[in-house]
Amino acid sequence: MHKHVVRAMNVFRLIGLYFKVNLASALEYRASFLLQAFGMALNNCSFVFFWYIAFSQIGGRIGGYDFNDVMFIWALCSSAFGASHILFANMNSITRIIVSGELDTFLLQPKDVLVSLLCSKTSLTAWGDFLYGFILMALTHGGDAQAWSMFLLGIAIGGLLMTAISVTAHTMTFYLGDASLIGSMALEFVINFCIYPEGIYRGVVRVLMLSVIPASFIVHIPLKLARHFSPGLLLLLLTVSAAYCCFAYVFFYRGLKRYESGNLIIARM
């Protein structure tokens, strides 16, 4: 048990160090950093406008959600996406790194390969996504402590789930040779099911959102918990999310055994 705790602490320390280095690098180009983050936040604001128009057309609820519910799932999805891309932006490049043979560099490092691979890049626009969620929450939920606590927990869970989805999709490259199409689409696909009320879908799609496309666990269940807290539902959320992330981790390492080095010589700066 003690060994696992130490290992987990080491992983968190490694993620923290990568974060510090990546942030310092981003801040070297302050103007670009701020402009990109601001642009992304503004970009997201346009969807608030869409929902304002949609609700003002009919009033009441859409798919069982009111305006504040929609703003909650938007805020959570945006901040979770931002957090995952601030910390693990390399998730989008896994296929390219495997196919080009750049993975060799990560295999030689004395730390967890997947963690090093994911953390070695950050995204500037992700800061805009991350902060946008907080602003939206402050504007629509004010001091609602239950909503804020589920929002913060949801960022951690959602961020990890989004990363796990991307890792799983890109890991298919080990089996298929090139899964760039699946890799680039998987996360966007899931996000599309996160940003609209769950109630607009029926039957099979709802089942998929609770399984293969874990959109319900990223935003919809945290919303339910924010509105009506239930310890059982929280336990289910934590268990399924942990299982999904563990599956992605194991799947990557299983796939890694199939990797053959191309003897590419590169230097990481």
Partner: peptide
């Protein structure tokens, strides 16, 4: 990939607008 996304967007918005129209007249 683009065709799949096009289909996905139409599917999502089809569901969304169906729900909106259920809520009232537009």
């Amino acid at each position: 990939g683009g065709l799949l996304f096009y289909s996905l967007f139409i599917f999502v918005f089809f569901n969304l607008w169906r729900a909106i129209y259920k809520g009232g007249e537009v």
